[in-house]
Design a protein around this nucleic acid. Structure first.
Length: 654
DNA sequence: AAGCAATAG
DNA sequence: GGTTCTATTGCTT
C-alpha cells in the first residue's frame, strides 16, 4: 500500500500500538517479521521506517475498491479479510469456452504448480488455462486501475486456490492442476497450515496424535467424528485431502461495522466514557456514510487479570431504538450522545464500577444493518453532523430483474476456481498483501470422470488481491474536553427521555447544554445543529491532499514511469474490457448493441456487470444448502435484495 | 436473540 | 500462543 517510490526500497513496517503488524519485503529481508514487537524490529533493523496503522480507514476503502473492481468483471466475489478475494470464474470460463474456436491452442498464463513447461497440459485443462488468463486480466486491471500488485492462485476450489496462490511470491500467479493436489497438500509443513485449521483445532488434532496432513488423511473418519462431530470431522478430513466444496459466497456489503481500541490500562468510568465517545463518533460517521440503519448495538471489553494474564472478551448487546437508529442514518448530531447512553448501560451490565476494574480494550459495534427504504425524509435534508462524501448517486432501481442475460448454455457443471494472490505496495509507508481467488468449472459439461486423487468433480478457482494501506493523516475531531466532565446535577430534572442522568453528568458541558437546548426537549428530529460539521470535511480534505501531493503516488514499484502514472480517478480507461467482456455476457433485449458499443468502456463494463449480477443473486439460494437454521440461511440472499441501495455505495463508486 | 469461540488477514 | 483491528460463521443458551 505504500506507493511513495522513495519508500519503496527502504525497510518499512506498519505499526499498531507496539506491534509491527506487517512490513514490506525489504524489511523482511532484514529480519523483520509480521507481529514482531517494535522493540525487536528496531533492534534487528535500526533503519526500519515505521508508519502508524491503527486507523484502518484507508485500507478498508482501498480494499473495497479492489472487491468492487473484481465484481465488475464477475459478481461472485467473496472477501477474506481486507486483502484477499475469492472469485468464482466458472461462468466466465464456460462462456469463453463455448465462444472460442476449438482449434485455438490453450496456454497457461503465469506459473503452473510443479511444472516448468505446461503447454502440453493446457489442452488437458482448458478451463484452468482460461482461468489463468482471467486471473491475469484481473491482476492487470487491479494494477492499472488501482496501482496495486499481488499474487493469484488458480485452482478448482477455494482451499487449493488459496494454497497455490503463494507459490510464487511477489506479484505472480500460479495455477494448480488436479493431478498435483495430493502433492501440494502433502508438502504443507503441518496441519496448522491448512486453511480452516486454526490453533485450537490443530491442538485438538495433535491430541489425537495427528501432526501432518497425511496423518489426518489416513486417520479413520469414525474416530474423528467422536472428537469433532459429524460435519466438522468430514470437513477436516476433506480439507486434508484438498477437497473443499464450499461455494464462493458473494460477500456484499459488510454485516457489521465496529471500532475498537486497546490500551494498557483503563480503570475509571470517566475514561471509559471518553473512550466510548471517541469510538462512537467515528463509528457513527462510518455508519452514516454506509447509509443503512443498525438495529443492534454491541459493546465489548477485555479485562486484565493478574492471575490469568489476558482474559477473553466479554460483550453485551441491545436493540437500538428506532428513533436513535434514524438519527444515525440522518446524520443527527445527537446520535452519538444517545448511543453513549446506551453504551454506558451495557457497560454497567458487565462492570461494577463501584469496584476496581482494569480494562485493556473497548469495542463498539453496529450489527443487523438494515437498508433504508429509498423513502421520504432521506438524508439529503440533514446537513449537520456529517457531510456527504457521495451525493445520492444514481438510485437506479431500474431493471432489478431481468434474469436472462447470461449465457443460457451454462448448466450447473462443476466449477473451477482460480486463485490469485497479490502483494501490493503503495502509498506512504505501507505494504499490504492482497489475494484474489477465483473459481472456475474444472471439467466441462460432460461429467468429470477422473477421480483426481479423491477430488470431487466440483472445482473452482480463486484469485487473491492485495489492499494498500494508506497512512491515516487526520484524526476525527474529539468532541469533548475530558477536563470539563463535571457534573451538573441540578439540571438532571430537565433531561430528555432516554438520557441516563448518571451518564449525563459525565458528559462534557457542551454536550450537556446541547441536550438541554430546545431542539432536544421533545426529542424530535430537530433542526440541523452543525456543531461538528467539520469533522468529515477535514478528513476529506486530507485525503485529497494526499492524493494530489507528490508523496502519494498511485503507481506501484513496477511502473517505470514515476509517480502518478497510473490513472486512478481517471477511469476513462479505454483498454480491454470491451472485447473479452462481450463474450461473457449478453445484452438485455432492450439494449441496442451499436449504441452500447459506443459507450465508454468503463460504462460498458459497469452495465454488463449489473446485468450479470441479476442472475447470481437469484441463483445463490439454489447453491446454498437447504435445511439449515433458515434465519441464517438466506441472509445473504435477502441482503442482496433489500440492501441494493447500500450495496451501490460499496460496489459502485461514482 | 444473546454471548462466546474459533478462524482469518 | 499472544500481541492489533477488524470481520465472519457456528455453537450454545
Amino acid at each position: 500500500m505504500i506507493r511513495n517510490p522513495k519508500l519503496r526500497n527502504v525497510p518499512l513496517g506498519i505499526q499498531q500500538k507496539y506491534i509491527i503488524v506487517t512490513c514490506n519485503y525489504v524489511a523482511r529481508d532484514l529480519g523483520v517479521t509480521k507481529m514482531m514487537s517494535v522493540t525487536d524490529a528496531k533492534e534487528k533493523c535500526p533503519q526500519l521506517v515505521l508508519v502508524k496503522g491503527e486507523d484502518l480507514t484507508h485500507y478498508r476503502e482501498m480494499s473495497y475498491k479492489v472487491t468492487e473492481l473484481l465484481m465488475s468483471y464477475c459478481p461472485s466475489v467473496e472477501r477474506l479479510g481486507f486483502d484477499e478475494n475469492f472469485v468464482d470464474v466458472t461462468e466466465m470460463v464456460e462462456g469463453r469456452l463455448t465462444h472460442t474456436p476449438q482449434s485455438d491452442g490453450y496456454s497457461f498464463e503465469g506459473h503452473v504448480y510443479n511444472r516448468v513447461s505446461a503447454d502440453a497440459e493446457a489442452s488437458d485443462h482448458p478451463r484452468l488455462a482460461l482461468g489463468s488468463h482471467i486471473a491475469a486480466e484481473l491482476r492487470a486491471a487491479i494494477s492499472s486501475k488501482l496501482g496495486l500488485t499481488g499474487c493469484a492462485g488458480v485452482a478448482t476450489n477455494k482451499l487449493l486456490a488459496k494454497l497455490v496462490s503463494g507459490s510464487f511470491k511477489p506479484n505472480q500467479q500460479t495455477t494448480l492442476l488436479p493431478e498435483d493436489v495430493s502433492d501440494i497438500m502433502g508438502r504443507l509443513s503441518g496441519l496448522r497450515k491448512v486453511p480452516g485449521v486454526g490453533h485450537q483445532t490443530s491442538k485438538r488434532l495433535q491430541a489425537l496424535g495427528l501432526v501432518s496432513v497425511q496423518d489426518l488423511q489416513l486417520f479413520p473418519l469414525a474416530d474423528l467424528v467422536t472428537e469433532f462431530g459429524g460435519s466438522s470431522a468430514q470437513r477436516l478430513k476433506n480439507l486434508a485431502l484438498g477437497i473443499d466444496d464450499s461455494p464462493v459466497t458473494p460477500t456484499g456489503a459488510p454485516q457489521s461495522l465496529s471500532d475498537e481500541d486497546s490500551f494498557k490500562k483503563m480503570s475509571s468510568t470517566k475514561e471509559v466514557l471518553q473512550k466510548i465517545q471517541d469510538l462512537l463518533s467515528s463509528l457513527v460517521e462510518r455508519m452514516y456514510k454506509d447509509g443503512r440503519q443498525p438495529q443492534t448495538f454491541r459493546l465489548t471489553i477485555r479485562r486484565y487479570s493478574a492471575t490469568n494474564k489476558w482474559f477473553s472478551r466479554e460483550s453485551r448487546q441491545c436493540p437500538i431504538p428506532n428513533h436513535i437508529g434514524q438519527k444515525i442514518t440522518s446524520g443527527s448530531s445527537d446520535a452519538p450522545v444517545q448511543l453513549v447512553t446506551l453504551a454506558m448501560k451495557l457497560f454497567h451490565k458487565m462492570v461494577d464500577s463501584s469496584a476496581a476494574f482494569h480494562l485493556t480494550l473497548i469495542s463498539v459495534c453496529f450489527t443487523n444493518l438494515q437498508a433504508r427504504g429509498a423513502a421520504a425524509g432521506g438524508k439529503g435534508s440533514i446537513t449537520s453532523f456529517f457531510t456527504h462524501s457521495t451525493s445520492p448517486r444514481k438510485t437506479q432501481s431500474a431493471s432489478q430483474n431481468q434474469d436472462d442475460f447470461c449465457p443460457s448454455g451454462i448448466s450447473p457443471f462443476m466449477d473451477h476456481r482460480f486463485g490469485c494472490d497479490m502483494e501490493h505496495s503503495s502509498t506512504e509507508g505501507m505494504t499490504a498483501q492482497d489475494t484474489l481467488q477465483m473459481t472456475i468449472p474444472a471439467e466441462s459439461p460432460p461429467r468429470a470422470k477422473r477421480a483426481l486423487h479423491g477430488l470431487p468433480t466440483k472445482q473452482s478457482a480463486v484469485v487473491p488481491v492485495a489492499a494498500p494501506q494508506l497512512q491515516k493523516a487526520a484524526c476525527s475531531t474529539a468532541r469533548s474536553d475530558p477536563n470539563e466532565t463535571n457534573k451538573t446535577p441540578k439540571l438532571t430534572c430537565r433531561l430528555p427521555p432516554n438520557v441516563d442522568p448518571e451518564v449525563f453528568g459525565l458528559l462534557p458541558e457542551e454536550i450537556q447544554k446541547e441536550l438541554l437546548s430546545p431542539a432536544y426537549a421533545n426529542s424530535l428530529p430537530g433542526p440541523p445543529t452543525h456543531t461538528d460539521s467539520h469533522s468529515l470535511k477535514d478528513r476529506k480534505e486530507t485525503v485529497s491532499d494526499l492524493d494530489s501531493s507528490d508523496k502519494i503516488i498511485t503507481v506501484n514499484q513496477q511502473w517505470p514511469p514515476g509517480p502518478r502514472a497510473a490513472p486512478r480517478e481517471t477511469v476513462t480507461e479505454e483498454g480491454r474490457p470491451p472485447s473479452p467482456r462481450s463474450s461473457d455476457c449478453r445484452f438485455p433485449v432492450d439494449v441496442d448493441p451499436e449504441v452500447f458499443s459506443q459507450l465508454p468502456p468503463d460504462v460498458q463494463r459497469e452495465l454488463m456487470s449489473e446485468w450479470k449480477q441479476q442472475k447470481p443473486i437469484l441463483k445463490t439460494p439454489s447453491s446454498r444448502k437447504q435445511g439449515r437454521s433458515s434465519v441464517t440461511k438466506d441472509r445473504k440472499a435477502a441482503a442482496k435484495g433489500s440492501q441494493a441501495n447500500s450495496l451501490l455505495k460499496y460496489f459502485k463508486p461514482n
